[in-house]
Design a protein around this nucleic acid. Structure first.
Length: 619
RNA sequence: GCGCCUGUAGCUCAACGGAUAGAGCGCAUCCCUGCGAAGGAUGAGACCGAGGUUCAAUUCCCCGCAGGCGCACCA
């Protein structure tokens, strides 16, 4: 049960104060999380994971090559292998040639000779132009990689590189009293995926949903409730009624500018602890949070800590006092408090209004300090839209001035979602609600399933439609890099072919179908793995690269690296599927291919898990 | 006005400073009496512009141009 529901329930007792209750419940939940973390830290399973850099064959090879180059020449650069070349690694020899005063090609010949002697895993090293193309012994790579997948299974790709250091990720953070729109989708999905990717790299992640449950917007809503609330409508569909009131407030405010002041006044009262308003506040947050939980359940998102902005209000006076004391902030004549940055590095930053009520700037600072204090994280990541870049720079800078390590804070921003008609706006009614998007996607997927596989039961169709429909939405977002703005169109968001989740899920289902038809997959014997056909080699190379992709995605804070990797993997698998029959093959070929298929399925599953997308044995 | 982000094929997107810039959609032509055609094969098709740094620039720097977003009592 979410915190707001608990608060609302506790308020059955009229002597209970909403914000005191919130403080109590919030702290209890934080305590609970800390206990869960220390329990988890005792689990030995973690130690079975590969340590990091050197744990996987492909990464081990890469590391050896780099070590050799660095030791011998002081350079360790490797180049991306171009599409037409099948090599596993490529060494550009230009800078080495420069230093030695010889031609790149001569340097390449020298390096090729030397590295072949040094690294036993290299089958051959070819020189083309100034490059050395390194071909790893595919058979050995295949054996080692399959061993790795077979033993680690769902952990294949993971490592304990993060050494259980704690990372806080703030994400999703919808506004209470408003339905979630597709605008919130990005933060929710990116944050959830980053959380999984960091965890896969051995970090302990605390995912916080920083709900927008406070501020002047609530004053406005409370005022609207006092004037125009329709009790019957609220009883039936509370969130819709709140949305109507919110929109009405802004419509009325156009002709009556005094409404803005009335909203601010209401918020001031709420923050000061007005019992009646606090009760209303708790109720409307509770119905909103129920709504969010419904959507999180559909998306498969698991929030560790749902704690809104209001939770930090008790800490704000202290934040402001310290800012004033350290001359970080000044109190203006009208009573407002602002941070003025030296050299006008940033515009000044308002912490409190002239009427004394708080602003989100102060709440964000208080929240950051609370997280540092409670979780002692090495990093706090904010998955918030790019329009708040300046705000976070100001927050981080102020935290630095307060004596915290500003380097711990990162704003992983992302581009705006707009509609063909223009910027999304809840007030203007120009918005697509997340629930509608999800339902539409499931419906489209259901039609496709019904058409392709009419023999499935309704229950199966339903499950498949959900996994495929939701997967399509998630993948659509996570397959592109964060910073770009996205113009929402139904067809794009719900694409089910080509580079899409269903494409990956489909490959998984086909792979599983082979495994199933094969009956007993022979017990894995390393020596029985004999990689021969070209397409087998290409596939095994891709399978070997998942750990690198996960590592890269974590360092870059970029889930799309995993998505891009998976798409490339599945393309190789689909070619393999067409070119290399498995069930009709015999002997070692059959056994090898069967293990390749099974390993591919495992990799798809692990990769999609990191994106928050389910796999299905049938679809 | 100042700041941040983005500019790659008709469209939507990839590419640790490295070779012939990759995919998907769309388009054209093929492949199911061989493990599921939500698939595969072939083809046409692109780095916003001008400088600079570098052996090497789509990538880094500078100046433009275009689009988006910010710049105090909203979040």
């Amino acid at each position: 049960m979410n915190i707001y529901r608990k608060i609302a329930d506790a308020m059955q007792d009229p002597s209970v104060s909403a914000f005191v209750e919130e403080e109590k419940i919030g702290l209890a939940e934080v305590k609970h999380i800390k206990e869960a973390i220390s329990q988890k830290e005792k689990q030995e399973e973690f130690l079975d994971l590969p340590e990091g850099e050197d744990a996987y064959p492909f990464l081990t090879y890469k590391h050896s090559i780099r070590d050799f180059l660095r030791g011998e020449y002081g350079f360790d650069e490797l180049a991306e292998v171009p599409k037409g070349v099948d090599a596993d690694f490529a060494i550009p020899c230009f800078s080495i040639a420069m230093i030695k005063g010889i031609k790149p090609q001569e340097a390449a010949i020298e390096i090729a000779e030397a590295i072949k002697k040094e690294c036993a895993f290299i089958e051959r090293a070819e020189v083309t132009g100034g490059y050395v193309n390194i071909y790893v012994d595919a058979k050995a790579l295949g054996q080692e990689t399959i061993v790795s997948v077979e033993t680690l299974k769902e952990h294949y790709g993971a490592s304990r590189a993060g050494k259980r250091a704690k990372v806080v990720i703030e994400y999703s953070s919808p506004n209470a009293a408003k339905p979630m729109s597709v605008g919130h989708l990005r933060s929710t999905i990116i944050g959830e995926s980053l959380k999984k990717i960091y965890e896969a790299q051995g970090f302990t992640v605390i995912g916080i949903d920083h709900v927008g449950d406070f501020g002047t917007q609530f004053g406005k809503l409370l005022y609207a409730i006092s004037q125009w609330k329709d009790d019957d409508a609220f009883a039936k569909e509370p969130v819709k009624e709140m949305l109507r009131l919110y929109v009405k407030f802004h419509e009325e405010a156009k002709s009556d500018p005094t409404l803005e002041d009335k909203g601010r006044e209401m918020f001031q009262k709420l923050e000061a602890g007005d019992a009646k308003l606090a009760r209303q506040w708790a109720d409307l947050c509770a119905v909103s949070a129920d709504d969010f939980e419904k959507i999180y359940a559909m998306l498969g998102v698991k929030i560790d800590l749902l704690l809104g902005e209001s939770f930090y209000q008790s800490r704000i006076p202290d934040v402001i006092a310290r800012c004033l004391e350290k001359n970080i902030a000044v109190k203006n004549e009208d009573g407002s408090v602002a941070v003025n940055f030296a050299d006008e590095e940033f515009p000044s930053f308002l912490l409190a209004k002239k009427d004394g009520s708080s602003l989100y700037a102060a709440r964000d600072i208080a929240a950051a300090e609370f997280r540092l204090e409670q979780f002692d994280p090495v990093k706090i990541i904010y998955v918030v839209g790019g329009e708040q870049t300046l705000h976070f720079r100001q927050v981080f800078k102020t935290l630095g001035l307060l004596g915290h390590d500003a380097g711990k804070f990162t704003h992983d921003s992302f581009g705006l979602v707009s509609l063909p008609e223009g910027k999304m706006s809840t007030r203007e009614g120009r918005v697509i609600f997340l629930e509608d998007l999800i339902n539409e996607s499931i419906e489209r997927a259901r039609k496709i399933v019904a058409e392709k596989n009419p023999e499935l039961t309704d229950a199966e169709k339903k499950e498949i439609a959900e996994a495929v429909g939701i997967g399509a939405i998630i993948y659509n977002d996570l397959s592109q890099s964060r910073e770009k703005n996205i113009q929402f169109t139904w067809d794009r968001a719900l694409s089910m072919e080509g580079n899409s989740a269903p494409y990956l899920q489909y490959a998984y289902a086909r792979a599983m179908s082979i495994v199933k038809k094969a009956g007993d997959v022979p017990v894995f014997v390393k020596e029985h793995i004999v990689i021969e056909a070209e397409q087998e080699q290409k596939l095994v190379r891709m399978i070997a690269r998942l750990p690198e992709a996960v590592q890269h995605a974590q360092v870059a804070g970029a889930p799309h690296i995993v998505a891009t990797y998976l798409n490339a993997l599945v393309q190789e698998f689909s070619r393999f599927y067409n070119e290399c029959p498995v069930l009709t093959a015999e002997g070692a070929t059959r056994e090898t291919r069967l293990h390749l298929v099974r390993a591919t399925a495992q990799v798809i599953k692990n990769g999609l898990f990191l994106l928050g997308i389910r796999t299905l044995d049938r679809m």
